[in-house]
Design a protein around this nucleic acid. Structure first.
Lengths: 206, 206
DNA sequence: GGATGTGAACGACTTCACAGCG
DNA sequence: CGCTGTGAAGTCGTTCACATCC
């Protein structure tokens, strides 16, 4: 559930601000979500709150991290070091949530050997071997649309468990592999649609 | 509806491949969507198909573009020219769908004056004036979390109709303004959650 | 009183199934 | 016969409302 990540983000903010307990109402308000929704979402995973008091922020952060799987490190491989790839490597949010980019690959021999944030770019031909070697579990695809499916196949055969696809093309993977696709152009289209319709339902991609 | 953009993407691909007509079944198959769903989605906006034949690809592309609002140009302003901002400027998908980045702004005086893909970076202090001048209707926020709300407020007061927010912080805007938020870290969290659960529902962020 | 957790009511979205057209 | 368009049925997610607990 995408909302859990939003809760976690907000709870971490509250923790930094020294807030010790929070009600479903206040947590929801900060995110534009109803209090009932917040309680249902959290209630699904266990009993974290105390009636009349609310939820203990620090404890809840730990619980939500455990639910989301960000209570431990995830070794990640990035494939494709164009502009978007670079942005992803530099993105602090990944590291903060335990996602460590351990290897970078590119199809272009010109880019191989470059060092990005201290990580050496390796040739895509080594992808399968290296992913297995480094026990990498998640792969991020940031290559052009044409290459996306081939890279996905390689990542799967190398043993990753999940793929985050930024290429603007649908890729298919076996059922046992998790897949999240983010198409940036679609986000803008969705925005232009909303503007045209005037009908503003708030969306978060979670 | 996010799926419309997916249909458009696939239909454009078919058009390039010279396919002239398509059934709801085949369009859906390419995207992992049921045929009934495709018919419902398209049927909501009009009668585009012919029973026994299918949908005319070229005509349908035009219709969907009109529905999504990508049948005309959208002047866009980008605020924040870090790694992500650069990736967005270089992203071909935007231009292809009619989104033209007409101005780039940054808070950092060091970055002002640089030229990115032929566009000169302007100071954020000029944002309000320039957005109105250039009749810009959409704004993309790619600044750090702390600055996001202030930039959003400025964009709104300058008259944009929609905002695409890449900053990892929830921002609030008046009801009449459309808002789409994309938090990259949340996508990875959603992936790690799926991997942990083993439960793979396919997600597309439109 | 203030807040949680949760069944029950509600609504939105999806799939089913089929009449009807080409 | 193939395929669309669409009511009807079904499913999933959200909101309501309240018993319960601090």
């Amino acid at each position: 559930m995408g909302r859990l990540s939003l809760y976690l983000r907000q709870l971490e903010r509250m923790l930094r601000d020294g807030i010790e307990k929070v009600s479903s109402r206040r947590l929801g308000e900060a995110l534009g979500i109803s209090d009932a929704q917040v309680r249902k979402d959290l209630g699904y995973f266990g009993h974290f709150g105390r009636a009349g008091v609310g939820y203990p922020v620090e404890e809840l952060v730990k619980s939500v991290r455990r639910i989301l799987g960000t209570d431990h490190e995830w070794p990640v491989a990035l494939v494709g070091i164009g502009n978007l790839g670079r942005a992803l490597v530099g993105y602090r949010g990944f590291r903060r949530q335990g996602f460590q980019i351990r290897a970078i690959f590119d199809l272009d021999p010109q880019k191989v050997g470059q060092s990005i944030e201290g990580i050496c770019v390796e040739p895509a031909s080594d992808l399968a071997r290296r992913v297995a070697e480094l026990k990498i579990t998640l792969g991020i695809i940031a290559v052009p649309a044409e290459a996306a499916q081939a890279i996905a196949d390689t990542l799967v055969s190398a043993g990753v468990k999940g793929i985050l696809n930024f290429a603007p093309a649908p890729i298919s993977v076996p059922d046992r592999i998790s897949l999240v696709a983010v198409d940036l152009a679609i986000q803008l289209e969705s925005l232009s649609y909303q503007v045209r319709i005037g009908h503003t339902d708030r969306e978060t991609s979670e």
